[in-house]
């Protein structure tokens, strides 16, 4: 059953379209990962679904109901919870109070304060402590717990790994399956592509607000993801970009292939030499030759490393 259905969605930061003509569906029980470079519109997408950012055009349907214009708090009541980028805990509230506030519009379901504290045992002893005094990883755990307590049907996770040590990230991703086993559908945004591919059933890659690739992690070739991530395709075929027709579906092998033969890494490298002649803005331009250069390593490790540097720098 389709839980979330987004069609032809646009969202704007001022004049700039952060999301254009986006179509996306999430089936009940599925875990969908949205990947993409900095500024691809991933966070905007989640914020638009959660209702803290207005949709410019298009529609969002949740469980068959049109929620495009629904205020954020009604969406929480309907079963959508967002773990926002940067945790955004309430610093003057204690750990326990942060969780309690998460249950403000609690739906019936398995999650409550005690259950979250079972999931993260350290919380019980530190329940009275101010949330501001926690480490980044601990804050992330509270933020996840805060979202869970509303018993969402759809859990939106925005950059859970951002700014955290690799060990901490691994630990958080260890608990994630346990959370999702309860039947929660998840839509997660990650710059750490390797991590995202590991937990997700489906991957959706955004570039400059448009879908450029989607499919099951197992069916996508590494080069395909790299190209989509950095937009080599989009640059080579400017005519294909408008209207989202540049998107490729992995289930359709013909669509995934690049007629110009960009699967040749050298070709992609040559392409980057042409950038100065192109008029369009190109944030990922400097990284275009990177995937082909970083030949060894797991899929997506190159882009992820690159992206992390950009965030922390």
């Amino acid at each position: 059953m389709t839980l979330l259905e987004i069609s032809d969605l646009y969202a704007y930061h001022g004049q700039l379209a952060a999301i254009s003509a986006l179509d996306l569906t999430v089936e009940e029980g599925q875990t969908l990962a949205v990947i993409g470079a900095n500024g691809a519109g991933k966070s905007t997408l989640l914020r638009t679904i959660a209702g803290v950012m207005p949709a410019g055009a298009g529609s969002i349907r949740f469980d068959g109901r049109d929620i495009t214009r629904l205020p954020a708090h009604h969406r929480v009541a309907a079963g959508i919870a967002l773990v926002p980028e940067g945790r955004r805990l309430f610093p003057s509230l204690s750990v326990e109070e942060n969780l309690l506030v998460g249950g403000y519009r609690r739906r019936p379901g398995p999650w409550n304060v005690d259950r979250v504290m079972e999931l993260f045992p350290w919380m019980a002893q530190r329940r009275r402590q101010s949330a501001a005094g926690l480490s980044g990883g601990e804050q992330q755990a509270v933020a996840i717990g805060r979202a869970l307590i509303s018993n969402p049907r759809l859990l939106l996770l925005d950059e859970v790994s951002l700014g955290l040590a690799p060990v901490v990230v691994r630990r958080i991703y260890q608990v994630l399956p346990e959370i999702l086993r309860a039947g929660t559908t998840a839509l997660l945004v990650e710059q750490d592509v390797a991590q995202a591919l590991r937990v997700a059933d489906h991957v959706h890659c955004l570039l400059e607000g448009r879908t450029v690739l989607r499919g099951r992690p197992g069916e996508l070739a590494r080069e395909q993801i790299e190209r989509a991530y950095f937009g080599v395709d989009a640059r080579r075929q400017p005519a294909a970009a408008p209207g989202g027709s540049g998107s490729a579906d992995a289930s359709d092998p013909a669509g995934a292939g690049d007629p110009a033969g960009a699967s040749d890494p050298a070709g992609a490298g040559d392409e980057s030499g042409a950038i100065p002649r192109q008029a369009g803005p190109n944030p990922a331009g400097s990284g275009a030759s990177e995937p082909s250069a970083s030949e060894p390593g797991p899929a997506g490790a190159g882009p992820a490393g690159k992206a992390d540097e950009e965030v922390t720098g």
Partner: peptide, 23 residues
């Protein structure tokens, strides 16, 4: 109280408060 806590939360971060269901 539930509303009182939410008032404090909203005072800390109005948007995050909306995300947990504050009207």
């Amino acid at each position: 109280t539930r509303t009182g806590r939410m008032l404090r939360a909203s005072s800390d971060d109005p948007e995050a408060a909306r995300l947990v269901g504050a009207d």
